[in-house]
């Protein structure tokens, strides 16, 4: 290909790059800029240097809020991946045929509906009169019945369970699909070596699914750290600050409390946290192939 032709290729790249620059890179630069000021979004901003970042890292409430996002990783990531692996290794090829199609379609429903809807549905399920409590009472565990999203000890785990519900189907199907690609000979070999199901899982299944697991973790960790929709709808961050997450706090600080600088600093911190968590996962699971 001629040099001119290759340069003219930029014409193809430019529209996408322009939209990206205007609506992502420029705002990102502005977020960083705002984060260095005290600004109420209306009047003239006051230079703040790194004050806002200092606040993010020293304010007890904000640290707790960031901590909440990490707690959510347990529910958004570990449960779907763990449970997905369990189901996948039990299912292996048992998921073909029309049965498989129906199950697969159902498991994908949470991926298709807006998270807002998941939040609404589960708020109802977890409410005092909801199905969860109804079930508990039906099996004689009425003493456990409670307002799951309203109590301090159970609110964050309950929000986490909503996320787990949303992400479980995707992870399961991904892992099942990945597992169906594993060469059966590997299992035969393991069995001939006398490996039990657990050894088999550790020696064959897990290593072969490295890439799928990495994908699941990446998707779900981002979903946990950057969560907003579910929390906004299900608990609005309460009780106390028990379920407030960085995404919600950024929104509140920027638009309700008009502390644009602090909101922006938190936004930058959130962005960095996502990168710091996601890059090692990528490296671990893709390292050998890159």
């Amino acid at each position: 290909m001629t040099r001119a032709a290759r340069w003219s290729g930029w014409l193809y790249v430019l529209p996408a790059l322009a939209m990206y620059a205007i609506f992502v890179l420029r705002p990102l630069g502005l977020t960083f800029q705002y984060s260095l000021y005290h600004w109420n979004g209306i009047g003239v901003a006051r230079w703040a240097g790194l004050d806002n970042y200092l606040t993010v890292f020293t304010d007890g409430d904000l640290l707790k809020i960031i901590g909440n996002a990490f707690v959510l990783i347990i529910f958004f990531s570990f449960i779907p991946v763990g449970l997905g692996l369990l189901v996948a290794s039990l299912v292996r090829r048992a998921s073909g045929g029309p049965f498989g199609t129906v199950v697969r379609t159902i498991l994908f429903l949470p991926q298709v509906i807006p998270l807002v809807a998941a939040g609404i549905a589960w708020s109802w399920l977890l409410s005092s009169n909801g199905v969860i409590n109804q079930l508990l009472r039906a099996v004689g565990l009425g003493g456990w019945a409670r307002a799951w999203l309203g109590e301090f000890d159970t609110a964050l785990p309950s929000v986490g369970m909503i996320g787990a519900w949303v992400l479980l189907g995707l992870c399961t199907i991904l892992l099942v699909t990945g597992m169906s690609k594993i060469d059966p000979a590997l299992y035969e070999a393991a069995r001939i070596d006398g490996a039990g199901p657990i050894r088999e899982f550790l020696a064959v299944t897990l290593p072969s699914l490295r890439r799928e697991i990495g994908v699941c973790l990446t998707v779900t960790v981002i979903a946990a750290l950057a969560s907003f929709d579910i929390v906004y709808i299900a608990t609005a961050g309460g009780p106390g600050l028990q379920t407030t997450v960085p995404g919600l706090e950024i929104y509140r600080l920027a638009f309700a409390q008009r502390q644009v600088g602090l909101a922006s600093a938190l936004a930058i911190v959130l962005m960095v946290l996502v990168l710091v968590c996601v890059l090692p996962i990528q490296r671990l699971t893709r390292g050998d192939k890159a």
Partner: peptide, 24 residues
């Protein structure tokens, strides 16, 4: 370089840019 620039946005939470987008 162009592709590298784009990769930055791949894990970007929307919350990180929503405030400037509002003013924009």
């Amino acid at each position: 370089i162009a592709f590298g620039l784009l990769l930055i946005g791949l894990t970007l939470p929307f919350e990180a840019v929503v405030t400037p987008i509002y003013y924009q």
